[in-house]
């Protein structure tokens, strides 16, 4: 790039520079715009439809006004509780292995890679797999198989939580300084105890936020529930029966031709997004405050 002399060339270079700066700012605005649009519209539509009945009543038949999504909220809670019970312990266990036992080994690298890849598997495929495994196969004497059930939906969601929980747990544990482990081991504490009571405890704020992130992610999942939990317009907390879920209900209501149901869909979406934004903000807050850095 000849630097000397040519004023026109210098002008062009300066202009290109400004143009690119402008384009980058424009791109950022274009990216922020849909987010703002979604949130404004969601709050505008959702808040006007939220009322007490939304949280206390179940779906009303078509034509009757009113009704709520209490059954879907409870259903989501049941599904997410089951998913957490399945996903969190296995995920944390896997993370502990990756950070504490398998660091640098080929097996750990393979597992880390598989977890990342599993994270990218579409949720609809999880739904099909859960259907094929639990709903579509009736094994005699084995409960929950052979029909649509909350159990199948919760399992699908739980499996989806594992890779996220596993990777965030690992990342948090890796940040715990070695000196802490050495101190524990130097005092004669057995290794398992040192891992659980010292390392995991030190990293626990990070691990908990990682779990919440995974939780928030599956809380909004619809695709894996479509043909596992199926949805239900009545009260149900039975793991052996089809169950309603907030995202499923939003989907059904959004595609229905009734204005009343559209209104409920917006309100449901607002509730869901508030839940998720709270979780994500908490994660952001904890990670940016550097809880772990303080430990070292």
């Amino acid at each position: 790039m000849p630097l000397s002399g040519n004023p026109i060339r210098a002008k062009i270079r300066a202009l290109t520079d400004s143009a690119v700066t402008g384009l980058a700012i424009l791109a950022t605005l274009l990216v922020v715009a849909p987010l703002v649009a979604i949130f404004v519209y969601l709050i505008y539509k959702g808040a006007s439809s939220l009322n007490l009945a939304f949280f206390t009543q179940i779906q009303k038949p078509v034509g009757e006004s009113g009704g709520g999504m209490a059954h879907a909220i409870v259903g989501s809670a049941v599904l997410l509780a089951l998913a957490t019970v399945i996903g969190v312990p296995i995920g944390i266990g896997g993370g502990i292995y990756l950070a504490e036992f398998g660091r640098g080994t080929k097996l750990a690298n393979a597992i880390r890679f598989t977890a990342d890849v599993l994270n990218g598997v579409p949720s609809i495929v999880m739904g099909v797999a859960a259907y094929a495994l639990i709903v579509g196969t009736h094994i005699p004497f084995l409960p929950f198989t052979g029909h649509f059930s909350a159990f199948a939906g919760g399992t699908a969601l739980g499996i989806m939580m594992i890779p996220t929980v596993c990777r965030t747990t690992e990342e948090m544990l890796v940040m715990v300084p070695h000196a802490v482990r050495e101190a524990a081991l130097g005092l004669g504490v057995p290794n398992w105890r040192s891992v659980l009571s010292i390392t995991v405890k030190t990293a626990s704020p990070g691990i908990i936020t990682g779990c919440m992130l995974a939780f928030a992610r599956v809380a909004g999942e619809t695709a894996p529930l479509l043909f596992t939990a199926l949805g239900n317009s009545f009260w149900s907390v039975d793991l052996n029966q089809p169950i309603a879920a907030l995202p499923l209900q939003i989907y059904v209501y959004a595609l229905s031709p009734y204005d009343e149901w559209h209104r409920l869909a917006w309100a449901g979406a607002l509730v869901l997004i508030v839940l998720i934004v709270l979780a994500v903000s908490l994660v952001r807050y904890v990670t940016s405050r550097g809880v772990l850095k303080g430990a070292s």
Binding site: V31, V32, P34, L35, A37, I38, Y41, L42, S123, A216, R217, A219, G220, E221, T222, A223, P247, I250, Y251, A254, A265, W266, A269, L272, I273, I276, V277, V280, R284
Partner: peptide, 16 residues
């Protein structure tokens, strides 16, 4: 903000 965009559930994008 970009992280939030990633956290919004698919069904809400669909609704919008």
């Amino acid at each position: 903000v970009t992280e939030l965009l990633a956290a919004i559930p698919s069904v809400i994008y669909g609704l919008w």
